[in-house]
Computed example of a mutant assay.
Amino acid sequence: MSIRVTHENGVHTVIMDRPAKRNAFTMEMYRNFGAAVALLDADDDVRCIVVRGEGGAFCAGSDIGGFDTSRSNIEQAREYARFTLDMTNTLKNTRHPTVACIEGPCVGGGLEIALNCDVRIAARSARFGLPINRIGLCVDHEELADLIGVVGHTVALEALLQGHIFGADEALQKGFVTRLADDARVLDDAYEVATRIAEGAPLVNRWHKKFVRRLRSGLPLTSAERDEAYACFDTQDYRNGTLAFANKQRPVFEGR
């Protein structure tokens, strides 16, 4: 399948498992990736999703070996984009918090997958880029909007115009990643972050993710949307959390 899912203590990991090709995506991988994330999205027991690649690589993008048959004209390219975006948008739109653990190459479509995650932790030796002008390809408008939403217009355009591969320090400086870790520590650091997320109140984490996405739209909030920020006071998790705090205990959240 080339996509595997593991889980432990509320942290579920989606693993891109095609190391011989640096985890470059085939159509089947896109399909399985979307299906795996959709199942996790529907599961109330999920507290955090980690996305990572197997074999010391995150993802080298889409496998260009299939471009001759899947993107040989405008109609095929439109269908390809719609299908792949439908699959990767399951990650962007999931209600659960997400963490990208980035090792090795994270380029093209692989970088777009990483940018769809809420937290992006990269090894210091990781490499990034959007070198699609080297093969005569444009970024779809929806993909471009996602890129601009994370790093801004100027950085997005610079990366696309240069088409260069850059290192983790530059990626951190320009907002492609949120933090760096030593190569030997990147997995541990990513799961420590995921565990801290998983230990928080899951409803609150989902609400905060929803609210941030809504505010990024720039549209005015309705009264009902403003009031949703106070729905937490009616949850069992709020009662558990405040009681645990008063008793100097670790809270146990139920997600209700």
Rank of each mutant, 00 (worst) to 15 (best):
A126P: 06
T90N: 13
G66C: 08
R78L: 15
W207L: 14
G241R: 08
I15L: 13
G163E: 01
G66L: 11
S70A: 12
D17M: 03
A38G: 08
Q162Y: 03
A190P: 02
A81I: 14
D43T: 09
L180I: 07
D86T: 12
L91S: 03
F67A: 14
I64H: 07
Y238W: 14
A181Y: 03
R71Y: 07
T178S: 11
P220N: 02
A24N: 06
L39S: 15
T222C: 06
N32L: 13
C106R: 05
Y238L: 10
I121A: 11
I64K: 12
L85R: 15
H96T: 06
G61V: 05
M27G: 05
K248E: 12
F166C: 02
I165F: 05
F166K: 00
A114Q: 06
Y238V: 05
V99G: 04
S223K: 09
I102D: 04
V11R: 04
E170M: 08
L161C: 03
V252I: 15
D43Y: 11
D118M: 14
T6M: 06
T84R: 08
G152Q: 01
L144W: 12
C117L: 11
H141I: 15
A246T: 06
G108T: 10
P97Y: 07
V252R: 14
A77K: 13
F83P: 01
A81P: 00
A126R: 08
G34K: 05
G56D: 02
R71E: 09
I148G: 00
A38M: 10
F83N: 03
E143M: 15
L40R: 04
P105C: 07
D169L: 11
A60L: 12
A184V: 13
P105H: 06
T154I: 09
D63R: 02
A246V: 08
R95N: 10
T26G: 09
D86W: 07
R216W: 01
F128M: 09
A159Y: 01
A246G: 04
D169I: 07
N240H: 14
L161T: 02
C106P: 04
G109C: 08
L243N: 09
A60T: 04
D183E: 10
R226Y: 08
L221I: 05
S72T: 08
N116T: 10
K92P: 00
R179I: 09
G56A: 07
F33R: 04
G55H: 01
V151H: 01
K21P: 01
L219I: 06
K210Y: 11
H96I: 10
E54R: 05
L137G: 09
Y238A: 14
I165Y: 04
D41H: 11
A229P: 00
R4H: 07
A114E: 05
V155A: 14
A171E: 01
G53K: 01
N93F: 13
R250H: 08
